[in-house]
Nucleic acid binder design. Structure first.
Lengths: 218, 218
DNA sequence: AATAATATTTAGGCGAACCTAAAAATAAAC
DNA sequence: GTTTATTTTTAGGTTCGCCTAAATATTATT
C-alpha cells in the first residue's frame, strides 16, 4: 500500500504521541501536525480504511500493527537523513530537522538501505534518538535523566531532548555532547540545580530546566 | 517566489525541450511531463502569471529569464543527487534517475550547497551531463558524436545520451565508460557501423545506433 | 441527573493538479 | 482560399488535503 507524504506525517505524529501519552486524541494530533481538528477527522477516517489506525468516532485512537510499522519506517528515514546531514555534510543538529522532514518522504527502500550502509548502520541519530533498523527494530538503551542519576558516579551522555539551537549553544559552552562523560557532584534542593564535573574541566552548575533535557546511559 | 514540485517539473521539462527544439508546443510538453494537453494549458497560465514563461494562447512558448534560472536550479539539484547516488552510495547510473527525480524537489539551498561541496563541486554528472553551479552557470565542453569523429585519432568519452540499463550493459561489455580513451579505426558505409579501438583491448565493432549515443571531448 | 463546557464530527467550500469531452483556433491539404 | 485535420483551449468534474462554521457527542460541574 502507498502512503502520501501527508499520511506519513500523521502516522509518524501518532506514533510519537503514543510514546508520550497513554491516550491520543484528535486535538493532540491536530496540534502535532499543525492543522485543524476537522482535518484530523478526515485523515483518521482515511487511515482507518487503510487499516493503519484503530479509530471509532469520538474515541481516542491507536496505530495498528501496520501503522506502527509505517511510523517506524518514516522515523528510520528521518533519523538516517539527520545522521547523514550532520555526519557527512557538517550541519549542526539544530539545523537538520526541517530538511529531514522533507527527505523522510522520499520513497525508495533501496535508497535508504544503501544510505544506512554508507553511514555504517548507525543505531542512534545525532540527538541520541534510536534509529529503527530495516525491520523496524529499535535498539533500546537503558537511560535516565540527569536529575535522577546517582551522585558521584560517572555516566555517559546519550540523548538530548530539546534540540533547539539555544540548547546546542548552551551545551557547547559547557563542552557537553553525545558521549561526554560526566558526574553529578551534588544537587541543590532549593532550585533543583546540579553541580556537575565533566572530564578534566572545572565544576559547572546546570539549572534543573537544562538538566531535565539531558539523558545518560545507565 | 515559491514553486511546487509540479511547477518545477514543468519548468525543467520546458528547459530540456528548448535544448532540443527550436519551438516548444503544448503537446510536446504534455508528452514530456506525462500528462494531458488540457493540464498543460492550466499550468502555462499559472506559470505565465508567475512570469516564468512567455506564453500567449495557441502560441508556442519559452522560458523567461527567471524561468531559465529556476530550471537550471532544479537540474543542478537533480544532477548533484545523481552524482551522490552513484559516487557515494554505489548505485549504477541506470538506477538513479527516478530517485533523483524525487530528491530534486527538496527545497533547501544550504543543503544543496553543502552537498555540492561534499562531492567536491563536480562539473559533470555520472552520465556526462554538466551540473550548473550555484549561479546557474554551465561548464561547456566541446564534444562531438562518435559518428562524427576523425578516424585514427584518440578521443575521450564524455557523455552517453541513452541512459538505460541496456545501454549500460552494452557499454560495460565493451569496457566503455566516461573518460575511456578510444579511437575510430574505420567506418562502414553500408550500415554506418564503426570499428573502434579502446586502450589495449581488441578491436570492436559498434552499430551506428549505439555510436550515436556516445559523445567524446574534442 | 441536568446543565454547562469542551472536544469532535459533519457539512459545505476552496485551491492545486489532474481528467474527459466539446469548442475554438491554427495549420495543412486540396 | 475553402475545407479538412490537428492542436490547443475551455468547460465542467474528480481527488486530495485543507479550511470555517454549525451540529453533535463526550466530559465536567454543580
Amino acid at each position: 500500500m502507498k502512503y502520501s507524504a501527508s499520511e506519513e506525517n500523521y502516522i509518524k505524529c501518532i506514533y510519537h504521541l503514543q510514546e508520550q501519552h497513554e491516550q491520543v486524541s484528535a486535538g493532540m494530533l491536530a496540534e502535532a501536525v499543525q492543522t485543524k481538528a476537522a482535518s484530523v477527522t478526515d485523515m483518521l477516517k482515511k487511515l482507518q480504511q487503510k487499516k493503519t489506525v484503530n479509530y471509532r468516532p469520538y474515541q481516542n485512537f491507536t496505530l495498528t500493527e501496520t501503522g506502527n510499522r509505517i511510523a517506524l519506517d518514516v522515523i528510520r528515514k528521518h533519523r538516517l537523513w539527520e545522521f547523514f546531514l550532520v555526519d557527512k555534510l557538517g550541519f549542526r543538529w539544530d539545523e537538520v530537522h526541517d530538511i529531514a522532514e522533507e527527505l523522510e518522504h522520499i520513497s525508495s527502500p533501496v535508497l535508504i538501505q544503501r544510505l544506512d550502509n554508507y553511514l555504517n548502520n548507525p543505531a542512534f541519530d545525532p540527538h541520541g534518538d534510536p534509529i529503527p533498523d530495516n525491520r523496524g527494530k529499535i535498539k533500546i538503551i537503558r537511560q535516565a535523566n540527569l536529575t535522577e542519576l546517582n551522585l558521584k558516579q560517572t555516566y555517559s551522555v546519550s540523548a538530548i531532548k530539546d534540540q533547539s539551537s539555544q540548547m546546542l549553544d548552551l551545551l557547547q559552552h559547557y563542552g557537553i555532547q553525545l558521549g561526554t562523560k560526566l558526574k553529578v557532584q551534588r544537587r541543590f534542593e532549593f532550585d533543583g540545580s546540579l553541580e556537575i564535573k565533566i572530564d578534566k574541566q572545572p565544576v559547572a552548575t546546570l539549572s534543573e530546566q537544562v538538566a531535565k533535557n539531558i539523558y545518560c546511559t545507565l
